[in-house]
């Protein structure tokens, strides 16, 4: 597939995404080379906070103004079967009327951190394809979901007044990464109190950005304009401060890092696990197997071994 051809229509974009999800590095790297550095809004928050509906409402207004918008919804892969139910687009039905909107559901591929190795590739494809803006909706299990900060230029954390979800937010590290906090479903509980609580905990970022906290009722479109304004403000802020380029650079490096990580995982597990198991069965020394793996990964393990020996109290001969 030629990259220019891929970018020309909806179906081809969809196919290209499948290709990179399938490990086609040619298309992935070509997309990476062509990215234009568009805004990626990472949307995170616990399940049931209304992330999809909120995205749908924001995207609706933006699409109406003619912006080209892509939305990626991530759902978890079942650790038992490897399958998944991807259901984010169900709440975005109203976007079907726009030709300038593209929605794709992807799975975590069972990876911790809430994103598959190829999620950055999917983003890069959409970036290169000429969209103006990408929404990336995370799984929302509220745990270990900070990977999104490596990809997004703006991070929006969605809360609800009825849940004690700020504890989860703090635990998941989203307090530190969030640029905009939205208390959604504000009609269902003490939203103002929640905002007060959050305002007390939130601090100015190292880069000088003061996190915004606002409320919304997505289903009835309340608060959507304010959110769009806040998103714009943050967008301008990172450009003015010269942070945006850094963020795009981070996404590129992260993309490459994922290739490396996947490669390592493949070497250690997917490709060789049976070979190693058989070697162990045949009586081969485990430490020799580890040496070989390290060699294959290009890690200078010899030094590590020396350091290990020098450290006191680690006992014995070491590996």
């Amino acid at each position: 597939m030629n990259i220019d051809e891929i970018m020309s229509d909806r179906k081809k974009i969809a196919k290209a995404i499948s290709e990179v999800e399938n490990g086609n590095t040619l298309i992935a790297t070509e997309a990476l080379r062509r990215i234009r550095g568009i805004d990626v809004i990472g949307v995170t928050g616990v399940p049931g906070s209304g992330k999809s509906t909120l995205i749908s409402k924001i995207a609706y207004k933006m699409a109406k103004e003619g912006k080209k918008i892509a939305i990626i919804g991530i759902d978890p892969t079942s650790p038992f079967s490897g399958g998944a139910v991807l259901g984010d687009r169900i709440r975005m039905k109203e976007l079907n009327r726009f030709d300038n909107v593209f929605i794709r559901s992807i799975s975590t591929g069972g990876k911790l951190g809430g994103m598959s190795y190829h999620t950055p590739d999917v983003i890069n494809i959409l970036d290169a394809a000429g969209f103006d803006l990408i929404f990336l909706e995370t799984v929302g299990t509220g745990q270990d979901e900070v990977d999104v900060m490596n990809i997004a230029t703006t991070i929006m954390v969605v809360l609800v007044p009825t849940l004690g979800d700020e504890v989860q937010v703090i635990k998941a590290g989203q307090l530190e990464i969030g640029d905009i906090f939205v208390v959604n479903k504000a009609d269902q509980g003490a939203a103002d109190e929640k905002i007060k609580e959050m305002t007390l905990i939130l601090k100015e970022r190292k880069d000088g950005w003061i996190p915004k906290i606002m409320k919304s009722v997505a289903v009835t479109n309340q608060g959507i304009d304010e959110i769009i304004r806040a998103l714009d403000e943050h967008k301008n802020f990172i450009i003015e401060k010269g942070i945006k380029n850094k963020k795009i650079m981070e996404r590129m490096l992260y993309t490459i890092k994922q290739y490396a990580l996947e490669r390592i995982e493949n070497i250690m597990y997917n490709e060789n696990i049976e070979k190693y198991i058989n070697q162990i069965k045949d009586g081969k020394d485990i430490s020799r197997i580890i040496d070989e793996i390290m060699l294959e990964m290009g890690v200078n393990y010899g030094k590590g071994r020396e350091i290990y020996r020098k450290v006191e109290g680690m006992g014995g001969e070491g590996p």
Binding site: S78, F80, S81, G82, G83, A84, V85, L86, G87, R89, I90, K93, S105, S107
Partner: peptide, 11 residues
């Protein structure tokens, strides 16, 4: 999903 497929449910 239990059978290992990725299912897009649209309701």
């Amino acid at each position: 999903m239990d059978e290992g497929f990725e299912v897009i449910y649209t309701g």
